[in-house]
Design a protein around this nucleic acid. Structure first.
Lengths: 191, 191
DNA sequence: GTCTATAACCTGATAGAC
DNA sequence: GTCTATCAGGTTATAGAC
């Protein structure tokens, strides 16, 4: 692991814990056991650390969505694939997801623009999958935007819940979340 | 509206837009059309503004949950009431909810402690409603924690989605979200 | 109740010795 | 590649004139 990677790894922990704006370069240097000035031999600015963390993750999501779009399947199967990919990424990168959710607005210039582009494209792809399912009768004719929002809200904040109960079984989590999001929580066998 | 209330109203907009840590007292004074020092005739610290915004809202949620606990009804009816209350509060205070979600960790001392206490109690009350429903067969025997998390994630981030499509009908929103959270999105009539 | 001035400190980032 | 020293500016908050 290069020094640069170590810096980014430490930043992930601190940024997640206290927020990007509350962590100073001196704070970051302290946990690395050297001085703030030395950080600049490995990175060129604080914002570069933020963009490396968030844009790598956003590109990761974009790649996974590309795979989902390529499979030949119905809408529900594709939604299950999106959920599974999202959970896989969350279990591997909970800190980066938290930072992306909370601090993306502190990206600057072209980094900010690239992030918005990737996020909007991801949402648009998921919207199309849902619309397709509504149009062919797989999904209820609810407001597509509300379905999209409910799914993304749950998936995007999974990291915060997973943190409190780590050690949870990944496959079990996928099953539970897929069941709840797609089929709801009411037991039809009742009453 | 007192000057103090005007300051807090302006702070709600700025804190939501850029985050508590990124808004300086000079920024806040500027939109009020006076100087930073003058703010201190009406408030005693920046953190006091944050705590007023977030703790008032958290107490509001606690009161609504108290009403839900008092009604005599089954689990599903209580969950519907929680969803309706949450949506009502969101439509009235979208800025405060965003700030509470993103910046609660910047509360200090007793404010921080009170917030955690209120939030944990709210989650615990909701957990009990869900557990009751699972035990009497109303709800599926999914992981209670996953159900709790999925509901709260959706409700807590509703403000961000509502912002982009304001003017949405409140009752329609309640119906859609209740349907999706409780009954899922798959159309059982299909295949 | 708002102002100017300022205290005391923190911020990201750079220059240059070693 | 890490250090010390420092720049140029920003931060919350206070003192005291008006």
């Amino acid at each position: 692991m290069t020094r640069r990677q170590e810096i980014i790894a430490s930043a992930k922990t601190l940024f997640r814990e206290r927020g990007y704006k509350s962590v100073s370069m001196r704070d970051l240097a302290k946990v690395m056991n050297f001085k703030a000035a030395s950080l600049y031999n490995h990175i060129s600015s604080k914002e570069e650390i933020l963009s490396e963390i968030t844009l790598n993750l956003a590109r990761n999501f974009t790649e996974e969505m590309k795979l989902v779009k390529q499979i030949e399947a119905d809408s529900v199967t594709k939604l299950e694939a999106v959920i599974n990919h999202h959970i896989d990424i969350t279990l591997k990168n909970p800190e980066a997801i938290a930072i992306l959710n909370n601090d993306w607005m502190h990206l600057e210039g072209s980094h900010f623009e690239e992030f918005l582009k990737l996020r909007n494209a991801y949402e648009q792809d998921l919207r199309h999958i849902i619309e397709y399912g509504v149009n062919n009768g797989e999904l209820k004719a609810n407001n597509v935007e509300v379905i999209l929002f409910a799914m993304l809200s749950t998936l995007r904040t999974l990291h915060s819940w997973y943190r409190k109960r780590s050690g949870v079984n990944g496959q079990q989590l996928k099953n539970d979340i897929t069941e709840i999001l797609l089929k709801g929580i009411i037991d039809k066998k009742h009453s």
